[in-house]
Design a protein around this nucleic acid. Structure first.
Lengths: 153, 153
DNA sequence: ATACGGCTTCCCATAATGGTAAGGTCAAGG
DNA sequence: CCTTGACCTTACCATTATGGGAAGCCGTAT
């Protein structure tokens, strides 16, 4: 199996397979005489494992741990469970942060009539913080909350 | 006001102020004779506007639009409202995706006893269990859902 | 033989931010 | 007057995970 076939079979792009090899997430692939990488079904399976883990939001760093557990015959399911619940906690924290942003934005949008007046409360609020007596105080201390930014893909 | 004071007053790091200038999000700052950047209260206010918008999850690209509206005296509040609701929609979509990940993970974690048995269902599911003889029926669609990855900061 | 498609490596780009290094500047104190 | 320390400047590098592209080799079908 060459890299293209392995990519199709695993759902991981050839580019990413090479990348995973370069960062040693996966072992160095074997080569044909002419230098083509070759993959066994076992390696494709590992790629699928990685792919699925990425789909579940695990970072490459976490996947390294998961792979170690996967390979380790002496692993204990509690270890795996801990990784999973940590991941859940992280995701839930992010969800809460985003929900807070949504609440504030909805509050601002509701106060904005969407009409043709030359000024709405949103920009004023953004510029001056709390104004108009609005209680957009979901914004806590002066310290910034780590924020995720999203680009549509 | 030099860059350090402007940073403190706006909550935007000096590093990021220079970055915003370099990408032309903010106009080129004035300089003292010796080359120090100087900031007026108006510019500090713009930085605060940016900072608050970032806190609400707007990308720099979106903030460019918001700033244009902020500066444009002929702006219509409907335009601002549209940006806000678009942002809400994007955030909600991401929340739904993450919730789906959480559900899947919780399902896996619940099925995992957290005990000392040398194997749990999580790894088998992630890897499609080929190694341990289970079938591949846990596999869903081959198409990936766009996924966010989170690093704790 | 030739063309096409797949493979290789290497370099570049993304978004937003932090870090570091080498050097100039300013204000206070000896 | 000179030193010290805090602050400023630019420039470069790193991060995460991924895609794009070029230049060149390889394999197969016509």
């Amino acid at each position: 199996m060459n890299i293209g076939e392995a990519a199709k079979a695993s759902g991981v792009s050839a580019k990413m397979i090479r990348y995973y090899e370069s960062i040693r997430l996966i072992p160095t692939a074997g080569r044909t005489g002419s230098g083509y990488r070759v993959y066994s079904p076992t390696e494709v399976q590992m790629l699928r494992f990685i792919r699925r883990s990425r789909d579940l939001g695990f970072s490459v760093e976490k996947i390294e741990e998961l792979l170690a557990l996967w390979r380790d015959r002496t692993r204990q399911s509690a270890d795996v469970k801990r990784l999973a619940t940590d991941q859940i906690d992280g995701l839930e924290r992010k969800v809460r942060e985003m929900q807070a942003m949504i609440d504030t934005l909805r509050h601002l949008a509701d106060a904005c009539c969407g009409d043709h007046r030359p000024d709405g409360p949103i920009l004023a609020d953004l510029g001056h913080g709390v104004e108009h007596g609005s209680d957009c105080t979901t914004q806590q201390s002066g310290k910034a909350v780590p924020v995720q930014h999203f680009h549509s893909r």
